[in-house]
Design a protein around this nucleic acid. Sequence first.
DNA 1: AATGCAGTTTCACTATGTGGAACTTCTATG
DNA 2: CATAGAAGTTCCACATAGTGAAACTGCATT
Lengths: 262, 262
Amino acid sequence: MNTAAPRSGDGTIGKALEVLDLVAQAERPVRFSELLTLSPHPKATLYRLVQTLTNLGMLRYDVDRQTYAPGLRLVSLAHAAWRQSSLAPIARPHIDRLSETLGETVHLAQLDGGQVLYVDKRNAADPIEMFSQAGKVGPGYCTGVGKAMIAFLGDDAREMALSQQAWFAHTANTHTDRDSLSAELEVIRAEGVAYDREEHEPGIICVAAPILSETGRAIGALSVTTSTARKSLADLTRLAPHLKSTAREIAQATANWQFPSQ
Amino acid sequence: MNTAAPRSGDGTIGKALEVLDLVAQAERPVRFSELLTLSPHPKATLYRLVQTLTNLGMLRYDVDRQTYAPGLRLVSLAHAAWRQSSLAPIARPHIDRLSETLGETVHLAQLDGGQVLYVDKRNAADPIEMFSQAGKVGPGYCTGVGKAMIAFLGDDAREMALSQQAWFAHTANTHTDRDSLSAELEVIRAEGVAYDREEHEPGIICVAAPILSETGRAIGALSVTTSTARKSLADLTRLAPHLKSTAREIAQATANWQFPSQ
DNA sequence: AATGCAGTTTCACTATGTGGAACTTCTATG
DNA sequence: CATAGAAGTTCCACATAGTGAAACTGCATT
């Protein structure tokens, strides 16, 4: 088996996925010419790729507007991925309970290519939401769940993850290089909890606890997010024990069934 | 732009997606050798495809168990697809209201390659947890939502859809050929509602209304599903007007924004 | 030690995908 | 209403990228 994960350059299939990503990241239907400016490929090549993807149902082409959007076939594929590769199905009852106890919205995230992928969320007020939030991605280096997970990776995986960060200063508190973050990761490892101190968005704070495998590696993370208007960091500290115990419950539940560490 | 949608045979990318589908359909982590028996490709070719997909994050490889599962990258791609290409974000408030009014579980579905794709569901208080969730796919020819949508397709699209059905007799009531179904489609077009009379699962019945574009083509469908133990078909008939009016509301909401007919 | 099975690598071959350029719409503009 | 320009589509000589038979490497099992 191959070791690294370059995530691009893998032949034709890689190119096709780059295009798919481009369309997905656009967040709205795009015209062919827009894609052309965004992609490194010559016109004819891009054209064929887009055609193939459309034929395969991975892109949807709107004839009237002449635009491309991600196709619904992805949704059904993702369903399988979500059920098999995410902690969500197993974690769901535990998250329900936690969300109810705390009266706060709880997020469940996993690491994918150095980025945080939210795989489920439980809104205290409004139950059962699916992909509305699940599927969303965020940065690893400046979110509570991201830091919680990176702190508890194996050395190689952590190096990998650190090298994949953008280190963009979203706020004055954002870690903007690996040394700065690495120092905090030590603390997170010691405490078993990570805080987001308005590092991603001003006014937004969060506590997060990693979900650990038997070998002590992060396989996911839980978080409670709130705004400085509603709660303080001290308040969140009080929630930490609940988070940690729920994380431990989930870890146990997964150990009984299956699940690979990164 | 190409017209038809053969959904396979599209070069290397098509092959890669076939493999991805295979893994997704397995519903559990699969070994390489299992894939080998399922796929028409020779060992080496399959091996490379699987490697490429793994590198790209579309598959996840579990080193310990030597198994492949759909990768989480799909979940984030699907998020974009769900937001842009599904009716769910627009329809959500209307479905909420309907589900609350009726006190029943409401499903929202769209047609994708002749199959029904459930893009959202709203579970009322009393959850009959059964066969459906966002991302789940079902047959077109023997579900309420499927028949409601197929009835209101354009001629070409309907022919296409009919040719893509499996016509498997799930129950004694299942339509097993296009003539049988076509007759019912006439009725559905006249009434504007479709019923599933235990055609997919014994004991499960449903009413469905299509969501129509300005040109009268189906862009999705709504349904209320229940069991014969709880309700009769006559009961469902009484719900039909609510379904139809909600479907019309959603159609209006989409018209104001965007949306292509099939 | 011998057999068999699952997974991986090699390598000559050629099918597949490439991309520059030419062609066709369509839309904006003088 | 002619004309320029941009956006989308097709063509085709070329070589990269993918193919698959066969050989190889572990690792169980007998």
